[in-house]
Simulated scan of single mutants.
Amino acid sequence: MRSKIAIELIELESYNYHLLICSRFNDGETAYWVIDTGASKSVFDKNQADFILSEEEGTEDLHAANMSDEPLKTSLGILKPLFFGKLKVEAMKVALFDMDHINELYQKVSDYKICGLLGSDFLLKYNAVIDYKRRVLKLSDQKS
C-alpha cells in the first residue's frame, strides 16, 4: 500500500520549522505527529493512554538530543491500529514519553496537540520520502 500525506509546516520561531502530519485511529480520532528525521525511535505521548494497546513493564534508555548528557527514561508501548492516509499501521512500537513540554510549545503558535514524533524506525520501515516542494510525505509498506 502506498500513501501520500499532506505535510504542514509549523514555524515555532522565525525560520524554525517542524514538519507535521495527521493520522487517524480506528475510532476516527485524529492524531498529529512531528516528523523527526533525527530521532532513531518513534515516540508517543504517554498521556494519551486511550490509544496505547499495551505497555511493557520496565524502562528503556532513550538517547535524545536534550540539555542533559543522561538518556531519558521511557517505557515501551504498542499503539492501537492507526492510518497514515490509506496506509494502515498495526502494532506500532513506540517509546512512551510525557510530551506536555512539546505541546506547551505548540500551543503558543497553533491549536495542534502533538501525539508523537515519527523517528527513523518508522520512516525507514515505510520507505518514507519527504517531498518538500509539494509538502507531502510518501509512505509505502512495499519492499523497494
Rank of each mutant, 00 (worst) to 15 (best):
S14A: 07
W33T: 02
I35F: 10
L19H: 02
N26P: 07
L19A: 03
V34G: 01
E57W: 13
F44Y: 06
D50N: 14
S40P: 01
A49N: 05
F25A: 04
W33I: 04
L12H: 10
L19Y: 04
S14E: 09
K46R: 13
E55P: 06
D61V: 04
K46H: 09
N26G: 13
C22L: 08
S40A: 14
E60W: 05
I10T: 03
I52Q: 00
E55K: 15
Y15R: 15
I21A: 02
S40V: 11
V43M: 00
T30G: 05
Y32M: 03
H18F: 12
V34C: 09
T37Q: 10
Q48A: 13
L20R: 05
S40E: 11
G38H: 06
N26K: 15
K41Q: 15
E55A: 10
K46Q: 10
G28S: 06
I21F: 06
K41N: 15
A49W: 00
N47E: 06
A39Y: 05
G58P: 05
K41L: 15
R24G: 08
L53M: 11
A49E: 01
K41M: 13
N47A: 10
E57C: 12
L53S: 11
D36G: 11
A31G: 11
S42K: 02
S54N: 07
V34M: 08
I10V: 15
H18Y: 02
S23P: 01
S40Y: 08
D27H: 09
E29M: 04
E56A: 05
I21Q: 00
E29H: 10
I35Y: 03
N47T: 03
S14L: 13
D45K: 00
C22V: 04
I35G: 01
E11F: 13
T30Q: 12
H18L: 15
T59I: 13
W33V: 06
S23Q: 01
D45S: 04
D61K: 04
H18A: 08
K46N: 15
I21E: 00
I21T: 08
E55Y: 12
D27K: 13
F44G: 01
T30V: 14
T59Y: 10
L12N: 12
L53K: 15
A31H: 02
E57S: 14
G38V: 07
N16V: 11
N16L: 12
N47I: 02
Y32P: 01
E29R: 03
G58T: 04
S40T: 08
T59E: 09
L12V: 14
